[in-house]
Write a protein that binds this DNA or RNA. Structure first.
Length: 197
DNA sequence: ATACTGATGGCCT
DNA sequence: GGCCATCAGTATA
């Protein structure tokens, strides 16, 4: 009854990364801080794999920065980029097989006032429509790197139906492997970071 | 509307 | 020293 609601299970994450990325669309990210829930619907993701994906952090092997990508699926991989932003990923595939899904945009659902405070903006459209923006809105930083999304009380993902119309494109901000259309987004959703990309 | 650019700092070679 | 899975400006139309 008070079982873990409809939280995503380990088996959801331990699959082929692009499938996990597509299926994460529509799911709800929950960030709990001091009893307050900040919730957003995932509307944009990108898949990154391992040794065969030149755009992936894991391409050149395991380092202290990317080590979480090499562990089992369902963990938070949080890294710092461009001297200013954190990016949130959910790890995929099984132990030893690197993979992660970058969460690129959310549609804010609850705790919007709190998110506005965290971001310092009033415009709801601008709250979580980018990977660095949503981590700031949800107060996600490197202290959550390695957090287990399957069991955590601070950060987890609830199941929801996958949207019917999903668009794909090359990944944003990467020059390599343009032929892999591993960016997935909810078509027509106004919180997607970049339209027509 | 699109295009470019500076800020910023940790990580890797 | 160079490279970023970015963001917020500024400029131009």
């Amino acid at each position: 009854m008070s079982s873990p609601q409809n939280r995503l299970a380990r088996s959801f994450f331990e699959r082929y990364t692009p499938d996990v990325a597509r299926d994460l669309l529509g799911k709800l990210i929950v960030r709990r801080i001091d009893g307050v829930s900040l919730v957003g619907r995932i509307v944009e993701t990108e898949a990154y794999r391992g040794f065969r994906d030149p755009a992936s952090h894991a391409f050149k092997g395991k380092t202290s920065r990317n080590s979480v990508m090499f562990s089992r699926g369902g963990l938070a991989y949080v890294y710092f980029i461009y001297g200013s932003s954190f990016c949130l990923n959910a790890t995929s595939e099984q132990e030893g097989k690197p993979g992660a899904v970058l969460i690129r945009a959310l549609e804010p659902l609850s705790g919007i006032e709190e998110m506005m405070k965290n971001r310092g903006v009033e415009d709801a459209q601008e709250l979580t429509n980018g990977p660095g923006k949503l981590t700031r809105a949800l107060m996600i930083d490197s202290t959550l790197n390695g957090e287990d999304l399957v069991t955590s009380k601070r950060l987890y993902i609830l199941n929801q139906q996958t949207p019917l119309s999903v668009g794909t494109s090359a990944r944003i901000g990467v020059s390599k492997a343009k032929e892999r259309h591993w960016r997935f987004y909810v078509q027509g959703n106004s919180f997607v970071s970049k339209r027509n990309a």
